[in-house]
Nucleic acid binder design. Structure first.
Lengths: 228, 228
DNA sequence: AGAATAGTGTCTCTGAGACAATATCAA
DNA sequence: TTGATATTGTCTCAGAGACACTATTCT
């Protein structure tokens, strides 16, 4: 091989940002404004700048396009997509490093400096909608990764605000997994896992018996895992 | 941001190729021949060519540098390493897409068209040896991924030739995990998982009672998993 | 009181792990 | 026979899941 055959590529960081809105799993999507693909939906993301790592670029894009502040979200690298011609919008070769971000319920994605604003879209809808290049695949991989991470880690709490009831935490699992869970067994399992949640002592009143409030604990991994 | 700030990068595919030699986990390493880093050890790998996906490039490099034929190995994407200045050998920015490959016992890595030959090195040794750029990190991530994959998948059989005894399969787990497993429980667990292994009916004679021979079954995932 | 929601008790079943017991070979 | 290795039996314990039951509120 000669050096001229070497690929020189643009590198993008794209993010599957998930949140829960009204008990439904939503993903952040942006509307492309550039000439070729005007109006097409895509995952938020953009090109790495000089001196930027992929993770830094993903954090920046998340802030610019989705309005999520740095530090609010933890990023999880999903994988890299490098099929030739995956991006038909550019003549240059583009490879994309995908990240997963799980965010707490947010009022509305805010328009950033970039093109159009990001909007939260129910994952079910997003999956049936035509997305830019291979973003449908990336989204699918992201959702599957989110499902797997709920089993072995405590990330479910990052879908929720500071304090939450057991019912709300269970709703996260049910929305992401798309299954119903037994309230009794779920409660025992969660409270029986040291460091998953901490009781605040407060309660939240609703229709029936008041629900105890919890906040996220210090543990990060679940062992044994919560089974789907 | 202006278009000129965009990163233009070289993209490499690097492989953590693991095999078992005399019951010890080994990784393929190559000796760099290029001017700057002459003599330094590195993971096999190389730059993507025009029109090549990362997986194709990884397969090609595995064939060229380690002598593993296409189709003999299944590749598993580990992650992408994109820290600026991670590669001090080139002035261009280099990002690397890492893959994990598990191979059956092989006579010796063969020299390919590339520079020096790859040599199998015990993972313990490789970890203490200085490796090129961030390859020590990639190796560590690869070994950890291999450990995790043994739990949930049947890949352990790809470390072995066509037929093997239960003892040999158990040795794979023990070498990769670095723990001892109970022969009785391991035997029951493996034979009790449909599709993991199939008895050939043959036996292999050794010091004591002959051991039944098995071949890999059709299953790919283990459920419930084998616990470390 | 009655409806609604939160949380506990209890039973069963599966599977992991410890370890004893048996099987089948070579020397 | 003895020693070595392979395989099966058996017991115990932890945890998942089903589901009945109790607790605490609102209307």
């Amino acid at each position: 091989m000669s050096t001229e055959d070497r690929l020189v590529a643009w590198v993008a960081a794209d993010i599957v940002a998930l949140t829960l809105r009204d008990g439904v799993l939503n993903v952040a999507l942006v509307k492309r404004a550039a000439k070729a693909a005007r109006g097409q939906w895509a995952l938020p993301g953009g090109f790495l700048l000089q001196g930027e790592s992929a993770e830094v670029a993903a954090t920046r894009e998340l802030e610019e396009e989705v309005g999520l502040g740095r530090g609010e979200v933890q990023l999880d690298q999903l994988g890299t997509y490098s099929t030739p011609n995956r991006d038909t919008e550019h003549v240059e070769r583009v490879i994309s490093i995908a990240y997963l971000a799980l965010a707490a319920n947010l009022p509305e994605a805010t328009a950033g400096t970039d093109a159009s604003a990001a909007t939260w879209t129910p994952v079910g809808q997003a999956m049936t909608r035509p997305l830019a290049c291979d973003h449908a695949q990336i989204l699918e991989d992201g959702v599957e990764r989110a499902r797997a991470r709920l089993e072995y880690s405590t990330v479910a709490t990052s879908f929720l605000d500071g304090t939450f009831t057991m019912r709300e935490l269970r709703a996260v699992y049910e929305a992401v997994w798309g299954t119903d869970l037994d309230p009794a067994n779920f409660h025992r399992k969660v409270t029986g896992t040291a460091g998953f949640v901490e009781p605040t002592g407060e309660v939240r009143r609703g229709r029936g018996r008041p629900a105890a409030l919890f906040r996220a604990g210090v543990a990060e991994s679940l062992n044994p895992p919560l089974t789907r």
